[in-house]
């Protein structure tokens, strides 16, 4: 069995006798942990430590990092996206995409953690409550500040956050006053909704008030199919 030291050498197990030579699939690099010869994966794992599949998923549930780390990372994400787009709508779309991929994974994680008591949400109000409390609490340690239904449109709902954490360090210059970096959080919400089969679009809008200058409203617009389903369910 190959051991850790051979992982660093270019040596390929070779013997002129074809019955002895270890099988080497054509597309692998020369370094190979032969323990995994039976699987189709060619990934190497360290000999002593286990892989991520041996770690319990709840291990990092309560762990915390500094808010500054997230702020710097998010800021860099915004700057990188800014270089590759022209226009604020595009920038918000990129942030939305980032949030989307995070939301997908977060949804899986949260539902798994709920375990047996996890309920599949079928009503609009149910899924929105899930987002307002569970999802929000898991990322921001506090529930969202409000949930409202639009009076004019059947398919529009509004989720209110008085002070979105992602915006706390961002001061938008005047020429980009349309930008709201909470598009990132909108992406998370959209992914959770999509994953629970409530397709729609989520956008972030800032509505500063006297007391709450950073207040943001996430406008959730559901697809036709969802509204129809909701009315059928009664």
């Amino acid at each position: 069995m190959q051991r850790g030291d051979s992982l660093n050498s270019p040596f390929v197990p070779f013997s002129p006798n074809p019955s002895i030579q270890q099988g080497t699939p054509t597309s692998t690099p020369p370094l190979k942990h032969t323990l995994s010869s039976s699987t189709s994966s060619n990934l190497r794992y360290s000999s002593s430590r286990k892989s991520i599949y041996d770690r319990h998923l709840n291990r990092s549930q309560r762990s915390e990092l500094s808010k500054a780390s997230f702020a710097f990372l998010f800021g860099e994400m915004v700057q990188y996206a800014q270089k590759r787009v022209n226009g604020i709508a595009d920038l918000e779309k990129k942030l939305n995409l980032h949030g989307y991929s995070i939301g997908q994974r977060l949804l899986e994680l949260l539902l798994w953690r709920e375990g047996r008591s996890a309920k599949r949400e079928t009503r609009i109000l149910g899924i929105l409550q899930f987002i307002t409390t569970t999802v929000y609490r898991s990322i921001f340690n506090k529930p969202a500040d409000g949930l409202e239904k639009s009076r004019d449109n059947e398919d529009e709902y509004m989720l209110i956050d008085n002070d979105p954490m992602v915006n706390s360090y961002i001061s938008v210059p005047k020429e980009m006053s349309q930008l709201n970096c909470a598009a990132f959080v909108a992406g998370i919400i959209e992914a959770v909704l999509d994953g629970c089969l409530f397709p729609g679009r989520v956008t972030a809008h800032s509505v500063p008030t006297e007391q709450l200058p950073a207040k943001t409203v996430f406008l959730i617009k559901f697809d036709e199919a969802v509204i129809e389903r909701e009315s059928v369910l009664g």
Binding site: S60, E64, K67, L73, E76, M77, I102, R105, S138
Partner: peptide, 24 residues
Amino acid sequence: VWKTRIDKVNAELVTLTYGSIVAQ
């Protein structure tokens, strides 16, 4: 400093954000 002066945030959010950046 970690105990007293740092605002904290959920680690998984940072992990997922970093992953999203690398994937992008």
